[in-house]
Computed example of a mutant assay.
Amino acid sequence: MTSTTPGSLHIVCPHCDAVNRLPAARLIEQPTCGKCQKDLFTGQPVDLASARFLKHIERSDIPVLVDFWAPWCGPCRSMAPFYVQAAKTLEPAFRVVKVNTEASPDLGSRFNIRSIPTLALFRKGVEVARQPGAIDANAIIAWARDKARL
């Protein structure tokens, strides 16, 4: 992983996957990607599949919150609107993503996902916390913020 200058962060673009380096203070200024010029934060969970997922968790300097889910899962569908609400609050301090385990079974297997929905929090490519089961927006936000302090 490349190093950042003091006070700067690597942020992976949710649109083109370019790695952007920007001062940490600019996170709250609605930064845009240097490559595609789109917003780096949209207030919506980013749907990621295998290759894109790994780049986001490995290259991002902010915590990455992941919802491992499947379209046939009732609790996953009931948690989805809460996850969207949480994304609006957690960004830009977090990258909020979703992984469809049906479309990317390799990721479900690689990260030993045994029940869905499962939230996982990654820092610098390493899983630091996991929460199985559907929870509401306030619980998602509180859990993510608490675990990001580890």
Rank of each mutant, 00 (worst) to 15 (best):
V128F: 03
P31R: 01
S60Y: 01
Q85K: 15
I57N: 04
T4K: 08
Q44V: 05
K35C: 13
L48T: 08
V128G: 05
T5F: 14
R123G: 09
A142P: 10
V84I: 12
L54H: 13
K98W: 03
A93P: 10
D136Q: 10
R77I: 11
V97W: 05
G125Q: 05
F82P: 11
N112Q: 15
T42P: 05
G34H: 09
V19E: 13
Q30T: 13
L48R: 08
D61R: 04
G43H: 07
H56T: 13
A120I: 03
L54Q: 12
A142K: 10
I11E: 00
K55V: 13
V46A: 11
T5C: 14
M1Y: 14
P105N: 12
V128S: 06
P23D: 10
I135A: 02
R110I: 12
S50I: 14
E58F: 12
R52M: 11
F122D: 00
L27P: 01
V84G: 10
A134K: 06
D61A: 05
D136A: 04
A120K: 02
S3T: 14
P6R: 08
A24H: 01
R77Y: 06
R145E: 12
A139I: 03
R130A: 06
C36Y: 04
V46I: 13
V126K: 15
D61Y: 01
S78L: 15
R145N: 14
N138F: 05
I62F: 03
P105E: 10
V12T: 06
V97Q: 07
I140W: 00
D67I: 01
A129P: 03
L22G: 02
A144H: 01
G74H: 11
Q131H: 12
V97N: 07
F82L: 13
R114G: 09
T89W: 07
G133M: 06
A25F: 09
F53Y: 04
A103R: 10
T5Q: 14
P71F: 09
R123Y: 11
I140A: 00
F41G: 00
F41Q: 00
A120T: 05
C16Y: 07
D136R: 04
D47P: 14
S104Q: 07
D146F: 10
R149Q: 15
R21Y: 11
Q30Y: 13
E29Y: 06
L121K: 00
S60H: 01
P132I: 11
F82E: 15
V99S: 06
C13V: 01
